[in-house]
Simulated scan of single mutants.
Amino acid sequence: MDVVYPILIGAGIISMLLAFVIKKKQPVDSFSSLPTQRTTDKDELEKNMQRLQKQWKQETNLLASEWQEMRADLLQDIASLHKRLDNMDQQLKQSISHKQHAPKNTDVIEPASQVQDVDMLALRERYRRVFELSKEGLSPDEIAKRLGAGRGEIDLIFSLADKHERGLADA
């Protein structure tokens, strides 16, 4: 323990002498170039900061405009959905009032063609959506999860559809 202290003190003195010698060997010109280098670094830094600030403002403006467009699209979608909902409510009220005013004749059979047309349109839309998601690269499991359907239903749709029908999903 007594030997450690003198060694540490000696190493400290040697390092201080080396630092003093190295400092004296530096030419005088290096000190004069140091402030100009600092000012050029400062100027470059300010230019870079201004460039980044400009780029940030442009990106912010771009994102803001995209957000506004998406918001407008969503508002239009909501308005169209409200219209569809109002139309459906009116149709429901009309059908209820029509059934109440209709005679209670059990021999009359309502035409099923309208119901079948609605069901066929819904099925076609569902099939089209399945093929669209498939073209996006989703697996059958992911497609089933997105559409709230079973994996078997998705597999059945793919197995029953020939290649020509899959191509018509874009139309």
Rank of each mutant, 00 (worst) to 15 (best):
M1R: 07
M1L: 02
D2Q: 11
V3Q: 12
Y5S: 13
P6N: 00
P6A: 00
L8F: 08
I9M: 00
A11P: 09
A11Y: 05
I13Q: 06
I14H: 03
I14N: 05
I14M: 09
S15R: 10
F20T: 15
F20H: 13
F20L: 10
K23C: 05
K23D: 11
K25T: 08
D29I: 09
T36Y: 05
R38Q: 10
R38G: 09
D41L: 12
D41Q: 12
D43T: 10
E44W: 06
E44A: 11
E46N: 10
K47I: 04
N48G: 15
R51V: 12
R51S: 09
K57H: 14
Q58W: 08
Q58I: 10
E59D: 13
E59V: 05
T60P: 07
T60K: 15
T60Q: 13
A64K: 12
S65D: 11
E66Q: 15
W67E: 12
W67G: 12
E69G: 10
R71A: 11
A72I: 07
D73L: 04
D73A: 08
L75V: 11
D77V: 09
I78P: 03
A79P: 09
A79W: 03
H82I: 06
H82W: 06
K83C: 04
L85T: 14
M88G: 11
M88I: 15
K93W: 05
Q94H: 08
S95H: 07
S95N: 15
S95F: 13
Q100L: 11
Q100W: 03
H101F: 07
A102Y: 01
N105T: 00
T106A: 12
D107M: 04
D107A: 02
V108F: 01
I109K: 12
E110F: 08
P111G: 05
P111S: 06
A112W: 06
D117C: 05
M120I: 04
A122E: 09
L123S: 12
E125R: 09
E125F: 02
E125W: 00
Y127Q: 10
R128V: 00
R129M: 06
F131K: 04
K135A: 00
E136T: 01
L138T: 02
L138M: 12
S139I: 01
E142T: 02
E142Y: 01
A144E: 02
A144S: 02
K145C: 05
R146C: 02
A149V: 15
R151W: 01
G152E: 07
E153A: 14
E153G: 11
E153W: 15
L156R: 14
L156Q: 14
I157L: 05
L160K: 12
A161V: 04
D162L: 01
D162F: 02
D162C: 04
K163S: 10
K163I: 09
K163E: 11
K163N: 08
R166I: 11
G167L: 14
G167I: 03
G167V: 02
L168W: 03
A169T: 04
D170H: 06
